[in-house]
Design a protein around this nucleic acid. Sequence first.
DNA 1: TCAAAAGTGTTGGAATTACACCCATGC
DNA 2: GCATGGGTGTAATTCCAACACTTTTGA
Lengths: 229, 229
Amino acid sequence: MSYTYEYARPALTTDCVVFGLDDEDLKVLLIQRDIPPYEARWALPGGFVRVGEDIDESARRELREETSLKNVFLEQLYSFGHPRRDPREHVVTIAYYALVNLLEHQPRADTDARKAAWFPLDDLPTLAFDHGKILETARERLRGKLRYEPIGFELLPEKFTLTELQKLYERILDEEIDKRNFRKKVKKLGILEETEEVQSDVAHRAARLYRFDQKQYKALLKKGFNFEL
Amino acid sequence: MSYTYEYARPALTTDCVVFGLDDEDLKVLLIQRDIPPYEARWALPGGFVRVGEDIDESARRELREETSLKNVFLEQLYSFGHPRRDPREHVVTIAYYALVNLLEHQPRADTDARKAAWFPLDDLPTLAFDHGKILETARERLRGKLRYEPIGFELLPEKFTLTELQKLYERILDEEIDKRNFRKKVKKLGILEETEEVQSDVAHRAARLYRFDQKQYKALLKKGFNFEL
DNA sequence: TCAAAAGTGTTGGAATTACACCCATGC
DNA sequence: GCATGGGTGTAATTCCAACACTTTTGA
């Protein structure tokens, strides 16, 4: 089977930068390539867009197929189209980024023959293609959006402590935050629901668990509320 | 001549939302289509990405060919890939937005047989394809970026008055701004160069002209300065 | 001399920062 | 009982919003 067109077309792919948070670090999920070019190099999960498939759907499908992740936060990042970014031919890629909680969404490590692994952001291997650049773009976007959209919660488990939330901000923004001021600010937003639960299995006073209240957030949005942390 | 591939490929285009400011209004540049589908409908300038051509370059080329605009501020906006956004076949488009000063960059109205015209944003015709949605996305992006990046200057002539700058912000953000506070804020940024010139041909006291100091802005950026208005 | 827009400071209230100690829990 | 992080309030400062009149110019 083959397909013929009157004019040459670049190939079109989607690639996805998956950020995950664990106790220590912000990490990114990479796939080890099993075919040339860049055989054995680490790369972003991704693949060709099918005709008739929406691009968001394509990104989700590739994510599912290569990492078994589904139902995750996924947003379009940027498109990269330098004609020699792939040595084989002109391949344009629409990059996405995803946010997952590393502990809840443990992806199957190896789906097909390929290895998948989490890498801390400050200890990355050299990536295939221009994926290093794409990753850097995603990182900047994450830093930028964290301040004025409530996307940080996507990296945490459903219920989390205020200290976990604060550490997340400190890690991604790379700055120290005052504990009392942070709590004051967060609570005043009015989008955290205080649960009845507290941490378990900790060797010190257990912290209260909170939940992000999506409905409340959307209701406030309509009233002209602006998230900012 | 024809091109054959093993797998089907969506077609790939770039489209561009060109914003222009004149004395009255924020306007957008549209092209009247001369062939089906959507014959005679107004649409965004754009066209197919060529193999071997960077996508930014493609957007610039289309802009030049269809509107004779060049050397303008151009930035990638978002990619749209719904499989039925074009009735003929699956066409993915990478949308850009451009900012020009309407008076300095008067595009030739009609390049080939096609008509080009400026439309005020609050009096738009129904656009071809999903171009209405793309335009709306560009408008939101412009509103969002205006606050924290110095892109407003791209819509003004090289030398402008503070009142012109203020009116620009008021129009795009759709809110009134206090004159004294605005001037205080803008001047404190330290990225406006005061020229020796004043307005001419005005029937009242002539206002001082200012210029955006790109070099100064970039120098400040490196020192961790954050633009905000 | 009139019309039209340019230009200019002060003050009160709100928001933000800096900062330190007691509490609860598990070992 | 001690080590570990949880949880809390106040005072000083900075930032922001509100506000009105005089000046310059051309017609």
